[in-house]
């Protein structure tokens, strides 16, 4: 894989605390690797990141997730990497949609109490990163670190 230049981080519903924390962590890692990061999510999910990162130190570009999908469907937007966060059926559906619309390498970050069951339902082409993390982001962060080291920031 050529060195990626752009990445999209797709947030699901922000009700599981792990997500916001790992999104900020991952954005920082990718920024440091020279990758241009866009974070897409619902209004509430984006507000959580904006309050946590008020000066945009970690997250520089954001967009509404449905608007991002519209742009991708119109072939006006695409990325080299997609990191899709999911802990529910709806999260899987959004990730499948983006995978179908994009040429990116897709990483499915599956977390929450039903992570393993949910991961089994994913049969679109994505690298799965699965951790039963709800409040504590460390299990997901550690697995993500390994994948980033092996496949993205070598």
């Amino acid at each position: 894989m050529d060195k990626p230049g752009t990445a999209l981080l797709v947030m699901g519903c922000p009700e599981v605390p792990t997500q916001t924390s790992v999104v900020l962590y991952l954005a920082n890692k990718l920024n440091k690797a020279g990758i241009d990061v866009t974070v897409a999510g619902t209004d509430a999910a984006l507000k959580l990141t904006k309050v946590a990162d008020p000066e945009g130190f970690y997250i520089k570009k954001t967009d509404d997730v449905d608007e991002t999908i519209a742009q991708m469907a119109e072939k006006k937007l695409d990325f080299d990497l997609v990191f899709a966060f999911m802990h529910s059926d709806a999260g899987v559906v959004y990730a499948a949609t983006i995978t179908a619309l994009s040429h990116a390498k897709v990483f499915a970050l599956v977390f929450g109490k039903n992570a393993e069951t949910l991961a089994e339902a994913i049969d679109f082409p994505a690298e799965k990163v699965v951790a039963k993390a709800t409040h504590n982001p460390t299990p997901l962060k550690n697995k993500l670190d390994k994948v980033l080291q092996q496949q993205v920031i070598a």
């Binding site: 449905d66 999908i69 519209a70 469907a73 559906v93 499948a96 619309l101």
Partner: peptide, 16 residues
């Protein structure tokens, strides 16, 4: 396919 547009501005979200 996902992304099929219906009405003015709804791009269908779904597992194909």
């Amino acid at each position: 396919n996902p992304g099929y547009r219906i009405f003015k501005d709804y791009y269908v979200i779904g597992i194909p």
